[in-house]
Design a protein around this nucleic acid. Sequence first.
DNA 1: CGATGGTTTAACTATAAGGTTAATGAAGAA
DNA 2: TTCTTCATTAACCTTATAGTTAAACCATCG
Lengths: 199, 199
Amino acid sequence: MEQDTETRIFEAARAVFVEQGFEGARMQEIADRAGINKALLHYYFRSKARLFEAVFRASAAEVLSQAATALRQDQPLPDRLTTFVHTYIDLIRANPHLPAFVLEELRRNPDALKAVVAEHTPGLLDALGRGIEDAVAAGRLRRIDPAHLLAHLIGLCIIPFIARPMLQTATQMDDAAYDAFLEARKEEVSTFIHRALVP
Amino acid sequence: MEQDTETRIFEAARAVFVEQGFEGARMQEIADRAGINKALLHYYFRSKARLFEAVFRASAAEVLSQAATALRQDQPLPDRLTTFVHTYIDLIRANPHLPAFVLEELRRNPDALKAVVAEHTPGLLDALGRGIEDAVAAGRLRRIDPAHLLAHLIGLCIIPFIARPMLQTATQMDDAAYDAFLEARKEEVSTFIHRALVP
DNA sequence: CGATGGTTTAACTATAAGGTTAATGAAGAA
DNA sequence: TTCTTCATTAACCTTATAGTTAAACCATCG
């Protein structure tokens, strides 16, 4: 329970930043949640911007590394796609605010992610491309631009989280129903993609 | 050129809010862009919150009404889906910051859109459901949960805009290439969906 | 002309928020 | 015990920003 102060601050900051974004977050609230004085935030992290950067890099790295790993699995591409969809949706279900958090920062500072993306996804597209060509050669897949496929994957996975209030209102689901919807989505998205890619 | 003051303010506010979000926007900047004194903002719109609300409602209504209209077209469902994808992507290309803007507000105040959604999408899901059943009966479509289909549509259309810096970095496209990518995406998404839905 | 009323501005206020500082506490070293 | 050092705090400082106010402007109508 008694974590060291720096990680207590970090975790509090993560919670607040992820919920409120950079501009919306208040240093005082972070201090309160960490149960420490506001000056300590600056003692450990210098400034709001640096604290945010630390939190953001960690979160983005977590998402990207998991996603990239799933896409690089040593399986035939169709199976890899299923793995990706399942792990990615599960990951986000555990941190539902994460995509919106990353996306907002992406808008505020479009270059922020470049370093992280470049670090975690080198050759990712090539790997995807090779996977596609192999599967095409094996007659298991129709050819598709890997960039589009990547976009499809991400879009299909994160949309129910970032647009939740909208979708939930439009479909009139209660929270339990929406949870079931999210669970079902893993299979739904997998089969949707597979069917779209039959040769 | 000489618009009336209120709309000048409104347009300036739209530009600033859409670029920076509510927290990031500064009343002074809105006033500057509108070429008027800051006090006038309050004269016409009372407070930052009210000004934002006006802008947000208008933007959200624009997106939702166009989208809902496309989905209600009097065509067989497969054609309707193509129409939707094309008009929606074109709409966003003309206002590329719009989705992120709406999504951020969705996070800041999840209930904000409920009224607008409820107003513009009543029976939308039912209409989609009927369209699906008709097409299924005609042997043109495999059955799919309309809620999932709606999510698929939105996710596939908006992802290249909200995740643009990420995708552009991962794919190493320059701006021209990314524009071509967006243009190509209309066809790509349409055929992807159609293929996924063959019976 | 001159009064009236909506519009616009310059100057101001209040406050909240990020950041700083100097003093205090605690814990080990000499 | 006393000195040193790192951790922590209360109080303070500065600035930026939403919002207010009172006066000036300007058109219209009598």
